[in-house]
Design a protein around this nucleic acid. Structure first.
Ligand SMILES: [Mn+2]
Ligand SMILES: [Mn+2]
Ligand SMILES: [Mn+2]
Ligand SMILES: [Mn+2]
Lengths: 227, 227
DNA sequence: ATATTTTTTTAAGTATGCTTGAATTCATAA
DNA sequence: TTATGAATTCAAGCATACTTAAAAAAATAT
């Protein structure tokens, strides 16, 4: 009971729960996976039978412990591949996600552990997401804020970007706004809720839409009070 | 029309033709792929329809140019992965084949070309097999002899080993008889057709069965006549 | 030439994972 | 409380890739 499809279902269920703190609705899951509601109905039955999810209809779908372990394993393979592809093979930042989306389903434990070791047991992937460890634990990710919530005049570091936004990541690469870049919020335009930020010698205008996909950590200068 | 199954069919058809210089018989193909004759019948129809093979019944199956290009591509991916896994990730010699058997079907052109470049556009895989180039051409492999055909007293270099013989390769690794090892044939025992060979400081007895899986190139010492 | 054996194909069935459209079940708003 | 709409499931069908058993076709042996 570990096929490409089931692995993708488990991953989506897990990620939704992680992002929103609640079980995912069957209709939502169908939309997210681009399949029909009937397909969800079918698959939910299979996953339940195998003890991977618990599903109360009209309530939502949740992973069991067993299902969560499987999901974490897929995510581990995904994120380790992403990091390996960009670090070792120099695959562009914007492309690693879609390559990993395939490889995550075709990698033995032995191979992924070698990749993990080769990379020095990293904690974060190229988009700033935590990489589940072999034992299933997750490095803690801070509570980031999005640029849309940032304060004028403050300094931030870019900590995380949505990995599935290929076009956005191409753009960020092009303008040099990569992960771990430190910048200052120069201006927040009320008119269109866009931001003007400055990093290195670049001044960049960031639309509201983009600002919602950039996850930041505020940089507290030495000597400044935090609170 | 490029699924895991079809890729495996094409590969087998190609390899048989390469090894024996003749089209493969449908029954033989069934045995090689561990499927029923009925499955071959089905698949042969599909592959023919897509112009990948030409099949005259009771005569045998042959790749078309298009089919051969596809086969070469799969083999390219397979052999590049093998080399990458052993060189970069230090996966044991005896295990790279089975890992590559999976990855060969899940690797984009972009990724395999990066791997090729990373390895410096190599000509041979870890078992001494030629790696098809991006353009479909094959580096020439010499006409090797097997140890079973070797002459007492002569010197040879181990040039190629059957990649699917996992146990054999484990054994060769254990005793240190790896690819490109140079050795002398000390003795050939008529009794069981076994060989005694010497390389570095090791004297090894090689059974007849093993001797047939080791492909060699004779080493002509400087000053010796060839013929 | 005929019989036997081998090769090949057909037919029906299984499993996964989808689809669409029609039923059904449930939640909720009037 | 009942009507409406949303969520869910059922039924039938499709595609891939297999299986076994039986039938058919061709090759080979006598
Ligand atoms: Mn990703
Ligand atoms: Mn996936
Ligand atoms: Mn191989
Ligand atoms: Mn394969």
């Amino acid at each position: 009971m570990s096929t490409i499809s089931t692995e993708n279902y488990l991953k989506k269920i897990f990620n939704h729960n992680k992002a929103f703190g609640e079980k995912i609705n069957a209709v939502k899951l169908a939309q997210e996976l681009s399949v029909s509601n009937a397909a969800i109905s079918d698959m939910a039955k299979k996953l339940s039978k195998h003890g991977l999810i618990s599903y109360e209809k009209y309530k939502g779908i949740e992973l069991t412990d067993k299902g969560e372990q499987m999901a974490l394993n897929v995510i581990r393979r995904h994120r380790l591949w992403e990091l390996f592809l960009i670090k070792v093979l120099d695959i562009p930042w914007s492309e690693v996600h879609e390559q990993a989306e395939v490889l995550e389903h075709h990698t033995s434990d032995k191979l992924i552990d070698r990749i993990d070791e080769f990379l020095g047991f990293p904690d974060f992937d190229p988009h700033g997401h935590p990489i589940p460890r072999k034992n299933g634990s997750l490095p803690d990710a801070q509570n980031y804020v999005t640029l849309a919530e940032a304060a004028e005049g403050s300094s931030y570091e870019l900590m995380q970007v949505d990995d599935h936004e290929k076009k956005l990541i191409s753009y960020l690469t092009k303008v040099g706004f990569v992960l771990n870049t430190r910048f200052v919020v120069i201006d927040k335009l009320d008119f269109d809720k866009s931001y003007t930020i400055k990093f290195n010698d670049t001044v960049l205008s960031v639309s509201q839409k983009i600002s919602e996909s950039l996850y930041l950590q505020e940089i507290i200068e030495a000597g400044e009070k935090n609170d």
